[in-house]
């Protein structure tokens, strides 16, 4: 049974803190509770999406800079 992290907000999803930096969470990497897994940009602000669950083998359902709706699946974990 995989675990899911959903987007709390509608906006644009970013996997990296800035274009020149590596992603917050690598594909296939682990996630701990409280980790930032990405950013959602809306209304000129960047909102950090923090994991409320932990897991391994992160599989992202949305690409960097892709639009997301509130409640959209962002990442699945084992």
């Amino acid at each position: 049974m995989s675990k899911q992290i959903l987007s709390p907000l509608p906006g644009t999803f970013y996997r990296k803190p800035s274009p020149d930096e590596p992603p917050f969470v690598a594909d296939g990497g682990p996630v701990a509770v409280g980790d930032t897994i990405g950013l959602v940009e809306v209304m000129k602000t960047f909102h950090e999406v923090k994991a409320e669950i932990s897991g391994t083998n992160a599989r992202f359902a949305v690409e960097n800079e892709e639009p997301v709706m509130a409640g959209a699946l962002l990442v699945e974990l084992d």
Binding site: L6, S7, P8, L9, P10, A70, G71
Partner: peptide, 8 residues
């Protein structure tokens, strides 16, 4: 509140 379904 839960996740937004529609509106803003």
């Amino acid at each position: 509140f839960g996740y937004l379904k529609s509106g803003a």
